[in-house]
Design a protein around this nucleic acid. Structure first.
Length: 105
DNA sequence: AGCCTGACAGATA
DNA sequence: GTATCTGCCAGGC
Protein backbone atom coordinates (compact mmCIF):
# COMPACT_ATOMS: atom_id res chain seq x y z
CA UNK A 1 0.00 0.00 0.00
CA UNK A 2 1.98 3.00 0.41
CA UNK A 3 -0.60 5.62 0.11
CA UNK A 4 0.23 8.66 -1.73
CA UNK A 5 -0.77 7.04 -4.91
CA UNK A 6 0.93 9.37 -7.31
CA UNK A 7 4.71 8.95 -7.51
CA UNK A 8 6.68 12.10 -6.68
CA UNK A 9 8.38 13.82 -9.58
CA UNK A 10 12.10 14.41 -9.51
CA UNK A 11 11.51 17.99 -8.52
CA UNK A 12 9.34 16.82 -5.62
CA UNK A 13 11.87 14.20 -4.55
CA UNK A 14 14.57 16.81 -4.20
CA UNK A 15 12.33 19.04 -2.13
CA UNK A 16 11.55 16.16 0.21
CA UNK A 17 15.22 15.28 0.42
CA UNK A 18 16.09 18.83 1.43
CA UNK A 19 13.42 18.90 4.10
CA UNK A 20 14.80 15.71 5.52
CA UNK A 21 18.17 17.45 5.78
CA UNK A 22 16.96 20.12 8.19
CA UNK A 23 18.29 19.30 11.67
CA UNK A 24 16.03 19.19 14.72
CA UNK A 25 15.75 22.43 16.60
CA UNK A 26 16.14 24.47 13.42
CA UNK A 27 13.69 25.68 10.81
CA UNK A 28 13.79 26.84 7.21
CA UNK A 29 11.40 28.96 5.18
CA UNK A 30 9.68 27.85 1.99
CA UNK A 31 11.60 30.50 0.08
CA UNK A 32 14.97 29.36 1.46
CA UNK A 33 14.14 25.80 0.60
CA UNK A 34 13.30 26.78 -2.97
CA UNK A 35 16.56 28.67 -3.13
CA UNK A 36 18.54 25.66 -1.88
CA UNK A 37 16.72 23.50 -4.37
CA UNK A 38 17.78 25.85 -7.13
CA UNK A 39 14.52 25.58 -8.99
CA UNK A 40 10.91 26.53 -8.39
CA UNK A 41 9.65 28.95 -5.77
CA UNK A 42 8.21 29.06 -2.28
CA UNK A 43 4.85 28.28 -3.77
CA UNK A 44 5.93 25.19 -5.63
CA UNK A 45 7.72 23.93 -2.53
CA UNK A 46 4.53 24.34 -0.55
CA UNK A 47 2.61 22.43 -3.17
CA UNK A 48 5.06 19.54 -2.96
CA UNK A 49 4.82 19.36 0.83
CA UNK A 50 1.05 19.41 0.67
CA UNK A 51 1.19 16.30 -1.44
CA UNK A 52 4.16 14.33 -0.19
CA UNK A 53 5.14 16.05 3.07
CA UNK A 54 3.37 13.57 5.32
CA UNK A 55 6.46 11.33 5.50
CA UNK A 56 8.88 14.15 6.04
CA UNK A 57 9.79 16.76 8.70
CA UNK A 58 7.24 19.22 7.25
CA UNK A 59 6.93 21.09 10.57
CA UNK A 60 10.48 22.44 10.18
CA UNK A 61 9.40 24.34 7.09
CA UNK A 62 7.75 27.64 7.99
CA UNK A 63 6.71 30.88 6.35
CA UNK A 64 9.05 33.84 6.04
CA UNK A 65 7.63 35.37 9.22
CA UNK A 66 8.31 32.21 11.23
CA UNK A 67 4.72 31.09 11.38
CA UNK A 68 3.86 27.53 10.35
CA UNK A 69 1.76 27.75 7.21
CA UNK A 70 0.34 24.31 7.56
CA UNK A 71 -3.35 23.71 8.15
CA UNK A 72 -2.17 21.93 11.28
CA UNK A 73 -0.56 24.78 13.17
CA UNK A 74 -1.10 23.35 16.69
CA UNK A 75 0.47 20.11 15.56
CA UNK A 76 3.43 21.95 14.04
CA UNK A 77 4.03 23.96 17.21
CA UNK A 78 3.94 20.78 19.27
CA UNK A 79 6.52 19.08 17.05
CA UNK A 80 8.74 22.18 16.93
CA UNK A 81 8.71 22.31 20.70
CA UNK A 82 9.60 18.65 20.84
CA UNK A 83 12.60 19.45 18.63
CA UNK A 84 13.68 22.19 21.02
CA UNK A 85 13.13 24.85 18.40
CA UNK A 86 13.12 28.39 19.83
CA UNK A 87 9.66 29.90 19.61
CA UNK A 88 8.22 33.34 20.19
CA UNK A 89 4.53 32.88 20.87
CA UNK A 90 3.18 30.87 17.95
CA UNK A 91 6.15 31.65 15.71
CA UNK A 92 9.61 30.23 15.24
CA UNK A 93 12.35 32.64 16.31
CA UNK A 94 14.07 32.61 12.93
CA UNK A 95 16.81 34.89 14.22
CA UNK A 96 18.07 31.88 16.17
CA UNK A 97 16.56 28.86 14.45
CA UNK A 98 16.99 29.74 10.77
CA UNK A 99 18.90 27.04 8.93
CA UNK A 100 20.58 28.33 5.81
CA UNK A 101 21.73 25.10 4.21
CA UNK A 102 23.78 21.92 4.53
CA UNK A 103 27.03 23.93 4.76
CA UNK A 104 26.25 24.84 8.32
CA UNK A 105 25.39 21.51 9.62
C1' DA B 1 0.01 25.82 -26.95
C1' DG B 2 -3.18 27.94 -22.76
C1' DC B 3 -5.61 28.14 -18.19
C1' DC B 4 -6.14 27.06 -13.27
C1' DT B 5 -4.65 25.70 -8.73
C1' DG B 6 -1.73 26.22 -4.59
C1' DA B 7 1.11 24.07 3.18
C1' DC B 8 4.38 31.25 -0.27
C1' DA B 9 6.75 36.14 -0.28
C1' DG B 10 7.09 40.96 -0.69
C1' DA B 11 5.07 45.38 -1.34
C1' DT B 12 1.56 48.51 -0.49
C1' DA B 13 -2.62 50.82 2.00
C1' DG C 1 -1.48 44.91 13.81
C1' DT C 2 -4.81 43.35 9.21
C1' DA C 3 -6.33 43.26 4.12
C1' DT C 4 -5.38 43.16 -0.74
C1' DC C 5 -2.47 42.71 -4.94
C1' DT C 6 1.12 40.99 -7.71
C1' DG C 7 4.90 37.80 -8.78
C1' DC C 8 6.32 33.35 -8.43
C1' DC C 9 6.61 28.31 -10.88
C1' DA C 10 5.62 23.09 -11.00
C1' DG C 11 1.77 20.07 -12.10
C1' DG C 12 -2.60 18.80 -13.86
C1' DC C 13 -6.26 19.45 -17.30
Amino acid sequence: MRPGGAPPSEYARKVLDLVDTVPAGRAVTYGELADLHGRGSARTVGTVLSRYGRETAWWRVVQADGRPAAPHVPEALRLLRADGCPLVGDRVDLARARWTGPRES
